[in-house]
Amino acid sequence: MSRRPDPPQTATRLRRFSGAERWAHRATAVLMGVCVLTAASLNLPALAQLVGRRALVVTLHQWSGLALPIPVLAALGSRALRADLTLLNRFGPHDRRWLRAVLRRDKRPASRPAHKFNAGQKLFAAWVAGATLVMLGTGLMMWFAQLIPLGWRTGATFVHDGLALALGIVLAGHIGRAMGDPEARRGMRTGSVAREWAMREHSLWRPEPDPPR
């Protein structure tokens, strides 16, 4: 697969995501979408009757779940992705201030300071990463049920189903937030964002200039 070149950084637009990051995000979104849709088809009777072919749906659900971590792991060779993962893993005083402003419903940009990623995005990334690992582990226990004690298998099923519902709700919220911010979507689609948007939504972020070519 050919990788699109990183977008140029200009006076009006700032480079936010590399080609590898955008590819990893899209591939993960597709796999997650397959997981959610197949899970719904397996657990909602009306949808299961409409879709049919339960064995095929089960197979798609299993393999898309197993492949879910692959895009991010494959993109770890990208320096930009590794740098962003480091930023997502750091929580500072400005993040606590951002969260307090959200709880107070204070929408003033000055009251919500953020670096490249705000506190909400950091919490979302951490939660989804943890949930994905738990879903993968419990899913494997359900897949190879004949090798797992009955008590463990019952617990894995309960955790897997409950966490799947919570994950679906969180993802719906994530998509809703993205739909309400066209510039954020443009940044993930093209790799660059408007300087004005960055200054308003991520006032502490100072993108590095493009290296000399």
Results as ranks from 00 to 15, higher is better:
Ile169Gln: 05
Leu140Lys: 01
Thr28Asp: 07
Arg53Ser: 01
Gly52Ser: 00
Ala145Gly: 06
Gly173Thr: 06
Gly77Lys: 00
Ala156Gln: 08
Met141Ser: 11
Asp161Asn: 12
Leu163His: 04
Pro8Gln: 04
Pro7Asp: 00
Ala184Gln: 14
Asp95Val: 07
Arg104Asn: 09
Val128Asn: 01
Val170Lys: 05
Lys107Arg: 14
Leu44Phe: 13
Arg79Lys: 11
Leu88His: 09
Pro71Tyr: 04
Leu44Val: 15
Arg186Lys: 11
Leu85Ala: 13
Pro45Met: 00
Pro8Lys: 03
Met135Asn: 04
Phe117Trp: 09
Leu99Cys: 05
Leu42Cys: 11
Arg185Thr: 07
Thr38Trp: 04
Ser192Gln: 04
Arg54Cys: 09
Thr132Lys: 00
Trp205Ser: 10
Arg96Thr: 14
Leu37Thr: 11
Trp205Gly: 12
Leu56Trp: 13
Leu76Met: 07
Glu196Lys: 09
Arg200His: 11
Val36Thr: 10
Met188Trp: 14
Leu85Lys: 08
Asp161Trp: 08
Val51Asn: 05
Ala129Ile: 10
Phe17Lys: 09
Gly191Phe: 02
Trp127Asp: 04
Leu136Lys: 03
Pro182His: 04
Gly173Ile: 03
Leu50Met: 07
Ala164Tyr: 03
Leu14Pro: 10
Asp6Val: 03
His202Val: 07
Gly92Pro: 09
Leu76Ile: 13
Thr38Pro: 09
